[in-house]
Computed example of a mutant assay.
Amino acid sequence: MRTSIIIQLTSMIVVGFLSGVACFYLFSLEQAIALIQLMDGRILQQQAPSVIQTILPVVFAIAVVLLFATHPFCAFVAKWLIALRATFLGFSSMYLLTQQKSLLAYGIWWFPFQFIYCILLLMICLGISTQRPMRFAKKGTATYRRVLAIILLFGIIALFEILVISYVFE
């Protein structure tokens, strides 16, 4: 049963990414830049994004996924939002790949970290959905510890991302 869930969630990321790639070709370059500026302007910057600009999207994504994943009637919305994030990953990846100067930024910064964030967000959904709802979880339950461990992992990866950003934008 758990294997089929993992296959479904992996398929969701792959289909989302490929949909973003396809959507990029439907937009003009000006429209793509406007959408990227709206969603995550760090991609368009020529200098290193600040720590706040790096941490804020991660914290916002965690908060929104937790908000929806902890309610039994809205759990599908959390997965839908993660699929949209994977779609934006594909969309922005195509933008970075079409810009010849952005190959290094794409290869060691943008794609690996955004892909890991999508996987960790899905792990939060999976961790919450396999147990009772988070609102009933007490401090000692497995769900609480699991989600806390994933959030700690998010923090460690965000710190590593900041280090990589300082290298990419030197």
Results as ranks from 00 to 15, higher is better:
Leu44Tyr: 08
Ala69Pro: 06
Gly155Met: 03
Ala63Phe: 12
Gly90Cys: 07
Leu29Cys: 09
Ala149Gly: 12
Ile7Val: 14
Phe113Trp: 08
Arg85Ser: 09
Thr98Trp: 05
Met134Lys: 05
Trp110Val: 03
Glu170Leu: 10
Thr70Ala: 12
Ile116Leu: 13
Leu148Val: 15
Leu120Lys: 02
Arg132Trp: 14
Arg42His: 09
Ala149Val: 07
Phe88Trp: 07
Cys118Asp: 05
Cys118Val: 02
Val14Ala: 15
Leu89Ile: 10
His71Ile: 13
Val164Cys: 05
Ala22Val: 12
Phe136Asp: 12
Leu26Gly: 08
Ala149Asn: 11
Ala158Lys: 02
Phe113His: 08
Leu121Cys: 05
Leu89Tyr: 04
Phe24Gly: 00
Ile36Asn: 01
Leu97Glu: 02
Met12Cys: 09
Gln46Ser: 13
Ala86Val: 05
Gln114Val: 02
Pro133His: 09
Ile156Gln: 10
Ala78Val: 03
Val21His: 02
Gln53Pro: 03
Val59Trp: 02
Val21Tyr: 03
Val77Arg: 06
Val14Gly: 07
Leu56Val: 13
Thr54Lys: 03
Ile108Gln: 09
Ser129Thr: 15
Phe160Gly: 05
Leu35Glu: 05
Leu122Asn: 01
Val58Glu: 04
Leu148Gly: 11
Thr70Asp: 05
Ile162Pro: 00
Val21Gln: 01
Phe115Gln: 02
Leu29Asn: 09
Cys74Ser: 15
Cys125Val: 10
Gln99Cys: 11
Val51Thr: 11
Ile52Pro: 00
Gly41Ser: 14
Leu97Val: 10
Tyr95Lys: 10
Leu67Met: 15
Lys101Glu: 15
Ile151Leu: 05
Ala63Gln: 08
Ile150Asp: 00
Ser4His: 13
Leu18Trp: 11
Val14Trp: 06
Ala137Thr: 07
Ile52Gly: 04
Ser4Pro: 02
Thr143Tyr: 08
Thr130Phe: 11
Phe27Pro: 00
Glu30Thr: 12
Gln47Gly: 08
Gly41His: 14
